[in-house]
Amino acid sequence: MSVRRILVPTTVFASVAAIWWLAGRAGWTNAYLLPAPSAVVDALSELTASGILLKHTLVSLQRVLLGFALSVALALPLAVLMSTSRPCRAVLDPLLEFLRQVPPLALIPLLILWLGIGEAQKLGIIVLASFFPVFLGFRGGISGVDPKLIEVGRIAGLARREILWRIVLPSALPELVVGLRISLGYSWRALVGAELIASSAGLGYMIIDAENLARTDIVLAGILVIGAIGLLSDLLLRIAISRVFPWLSADLEAARA
């Protein structure tokens, strides 16, 4: 089973690379628009050797982790607050619903004006992009708690607060986990978007800089690195979650998207 789990994705990626290589070899694609896999590998090793790749990757990683952490730190208490307090819900729901409809990229100009083109603006975009999956996932999980489990708490004589902590929040975890995974993915996408527009470091910057220099091989290398880090961070998140909450493993499998 575990061999198959590694073998199948590896075969898929190898096949895509093979088709890509063949397409270049047969002259179906323009080597400038789509450099051969070997050229991209060369670019990757060149970037690695010079330390440029590591520098940009670390900058991007730091931004994503910080922005993601900020989102989670904001979303969790707010989700609990809005699930438990009717007045808060009445006041904040329309505002958040409005904000949710606005794509974060549309707010970039405003964020640049308000926060400049430094780190704060990038964090702002990541938070805007990654806040809602966590927030809505956790809220959905809280409101979807099985009332039959709450009755078990009532029979045990638990106070309202204890029911929240010992029944409602744990049972919201599966949906929170799905939210966290989506949110982490959104963080990456938003970051690269932000770095493409205004930045002097980071993987997004590396890509746009390479485009300006007509280095399609570096553009592709950057895309590969972003995808690989995205896959890896999702994998690490899943491993961490299944360590901490072993009972969630089944839900996690269902949430693989």
Partner: peptide, 13 residues
């Protein structure tokens, strides 16, 4: 009061 329901109603976590 202790209650045993028709369904087990265990906390899955």
């Amino acid at each position: 009061v202790g209650v045993v329901f028709q369904e087990a109603r265990l906390m899955p976590w």
